[in-house]
């Protein structure tokens, strides 16, 4: 599936909470459940053969609304990495700001990955952020991936963007002195 939008990841009617927790229960709500609360057996998350901490998704994942709740829901459900050939910008930032790694691979590699997982649902994938590699265990399938060095450093060390920005107080005040006003 391409173009999985954030309204599918977490529908708007579940955005009413004022905390960050608990969104995983409604991850992919309208695909996971049929009318009412009956799980849809055709949906991949309801198939026990497929489970793990890595979500593999089609091109342009996370398009649409800027709701960070989408990243929270995926993380809360238990995923730590999303693999796709292309991510929407805001989703990518939101994921990185929440310790969820959006890992971009080539379209060709993604298709190979889909085929492999379909053929062998118990496929295991190892992601090494330090080395920037993704490896399919017991298989020759592997690739490297790009990540912004600053974001990588933040993810690995758990650095906080706000602490960093607060440390720039003097620079921010200096900017305000010279900023254009009318």
């Amino acid at each position: 599936m391409e173009d999985v939008d954030t309204d599918q990841i977490i529908p708007a009617r579940f955005l009413k909470a004022t905390t960050r927790e608990g969104f995983g229960d409604n991850l992919f709500r309208d695909w996971r459940y049929r009318q009412g609360d009956e799980p849809n057996p055709d949906f991949v998350l309801n198939n026990p053969a497929y489970s793990g901490q890595i979500l593999v998704a089609g091109k342009n994942f996370g398009c649409g609304s800027s709701r960070e709740h989408a990243a929270w829901a995926i993380y809360d459900y238990g995923f730590r990495v999303v693999v796709s050939s292309f991510f929407a910008d805001i989703f990518k930032n939101n994921a990185l700001n929440n310790g969820l790694l959006p890992l971009t691979v080539s379209e060709g590699f993604l298709q190979q990955l889909f085929e492999r997982i379909q053929a062998q649902p118990d496929t295991r994938i190892e992601v090494d952020l330090e080395q920037q590699t993704l490896r399919v265990l017991d298989s020759p399938l592997q690739t490297t991936f790009d990540i912004n060095p600053f974001k990588k450093m933040c993810l690995i060390n758990g650095y906080d963007n706000i602490d960093y920005l607060l440390s720039l107080k003097a620079e921010i005040e200096a900017y305000e002195q010279k900023a254009i006003t009318f």
Binding site: E68, N94, N98, N161, L165
Partner: peptide
């Protein structure tokens, strides 16, 4: 441009945002 909630917090706290 649109931002996520962690970024809303950045802007509230510092009036700045980290952005590529």
């Amino acid at each position: 441009f649109g931002i996520g909630t962690s970024e809303v917090e950045q802007v509230l706290a510092t009036q700045c945002i980290l952005q590529n």
